[in-house]
Design a protein around this nucleic acid. Structure first.
Length: 293
DNA sequence: AACCTTCCCTGATGGC
DNA sequence: TGCCATCAGGGAAGGT
C-alpha cells in the first residue's frame, strides 16, 4: 500500500529519468482508474515535455508544458520505467494475500492501464491490479486541480507541519488516534503501515481516544510521524505485497517494521507478543506492553 | 459537524 | 475438482 515514503521513493526514482523528456506517445486502456476520458491522454499528451514530477500527500503530479497528469496509486498501483535495452524479469515476490508480484522491470499485462512512451524507447507504465488508483488530467490553467488537494492536511516535512497546529487540530476530538492519523485532512501521507509504526514509536495504544491523550503523548506522536516516514524513505519504502520502486525493485523498510505485520511475533523492545486488532475497519498492530491502553 | 460504515476491486487461500 | 466466503485497505459516499 503506497504511502508517503513509497510515493516519494517512486518520485525520486522517476524524476531524473523523465525530466526534460518529450513524450512520444501514450496508450491507455478503458479502466475505471481514469477520472476523465482516457482518450484525452492520447489527444493532449504527446509532444509535451515533462518539466517536473512533484508529490502532494500520496499524489504524484507530472508537470507537463500545458497539462498536469496526476496519479494516485491507491492500494496496488505501480509506476515503473521500462528500458527496451533491459531484459524483462521473470522473478516474483510471493505474498499470502496478494500473491505473486513481479520484482523487476516487466512487460505490460492486463493490469497495465497506461504507458507513456519517450523517443528514447523508454516508457513509464502505470499498473494497478485492484484499480483503487486514480488518474486525473488537468489543463495547466485549470484551477479546479486545487479542489483535489483542498482537503489535505499539512505535509509532514513542510513548515506547515507545526506542533501548535497539530495540537489545535486534535482539539477535543473523540475518535481513536489511529483513525485520526489515517485522516488525510489531519496530516497528509500517513497510511496503515506508518500509522501503526508511529504509534509504536510514540508508545501510544492505537485505540486511545484523542481527547484523552496526555499532551506529552501528543508531542511524541507529532515527532514520531515524520520520523518513521523519513526512515521509510531512506529505506526505499515498504514492500508488503505490491510496492516496487520505479525500477521494479522492492523496498527495504519491511525489514525494520516493529509492529506492522508482526502479529504473534515478539516485540524487539520488550519481548511481548505483538497483537492485531481492528481499529476503524483497519488491521492494527501494536505491542500490549509498550503501548498500554 | 463529527464520526462510523459500506463500497469499490482482485487474487490467493481455506473450508467443504 | 470446484465453489464460495474471507481478507487486504485508500478514500469517497452514504448513514447516523
Amino acid at each position: 500500500m503506497p504511502e508517503l515514503p513509497e510515493v516519494e521513493t517512486i518520485r525520486r526514482g522517476l524524476l531524473p529519468k523523465i525530466k526534460g523528456q518529450r513524450i512520444d506517445g501514450v496508450t491507455a486502456d478503458g479502466s475505471k482508474v481514469f477520472q476523465m476520458d482516457p482518450e484525452l491522454l492520447g489527444l493532449h499528451i504527446p509532444g509535451q515535455v515533462i518539466c517536473d514530477l512533484r508529490r502532494r500527500a500520496k499524489y504524484l503530479i507530472f508537470e507537463l508544458e500545458r497539462h498536469r497528469l496526476i496519479v494516485h496509486l491507491g492500494m496496488t498501483g505501480q509506476l515503473t520505467l521500462r528500458n527496451p535495452g533491459t531484459r524483462d524479469s521473470n522473478r516474483f515476490l510471493r505474498h499470502p494475500v496478494t500473491g505473486l508480484q513481479r520484482t523487476r522491470q516487466h512487460a505490460p499485462d492486463r493490469h497495465t492501464h497506461f504507458q507513456i512512451h519517450f523517443a528514447t524507447g523508454t516508457s513509464v507504465f502505470f499498473r494497478d491490479v485492484r484499480k483503487f488508483g486514480k488518474v486525473y488530467l488537468f489543463d495547466i490553467s485549470d484551477e479546479s486541480v486545487e479542489i483535489l488537494f483542498s482537503r489535505l492536511g499539512p505535509e509532514p516535512f513542510s513548515e506547515s507541519y507545526t506542533l501548535k497546529g497539530f495540537l489545535e487540530k486534535m482539539g477535543t476530538r473523540k475518535l481513536r488516534i489511529k483513525s485520526l492519523l489515517l485522516d488525510q485532512g489531519f496530516v497528509a501521507g500517513v497510511g496503515n503501515i506508518y500509522a501503526d509504526e508511529a504509534l509504536f514509536q510514540a508508545g501510544v495504544y492505537p485505540g486511545r481516544r484523542v481527547r484523552y491523550l496526555r499532551k506529552y503523548e501528543k508531542v511524541r506522536i507529532f515527532e514520531a510521524v515524520p520520523d518513521v516516514l523519513r526512515k521509510g524513505i531512506v529505506a526505499g519504502g515498504t514492500t508488503i505485497s505490491d510496492f516496487v520502486d520505479s525500477d521494479g525493485a522492492v523496498g527495504g523498510f519491511q525489514e525494520q517494521l516493529n509492529v506492522y505485520g508482526r502479529e504473534g511475533q515478539r516485540c524487539y523492545r520488550c519481548d511481548s507478543v505483538i497483537l492485531k486488532i481492528i481499529v476503524g475497519q483497519r488491521g492494527t498492530h501494536y505491542c500490549p506492553a509498550c503501548q498500554k491502553r
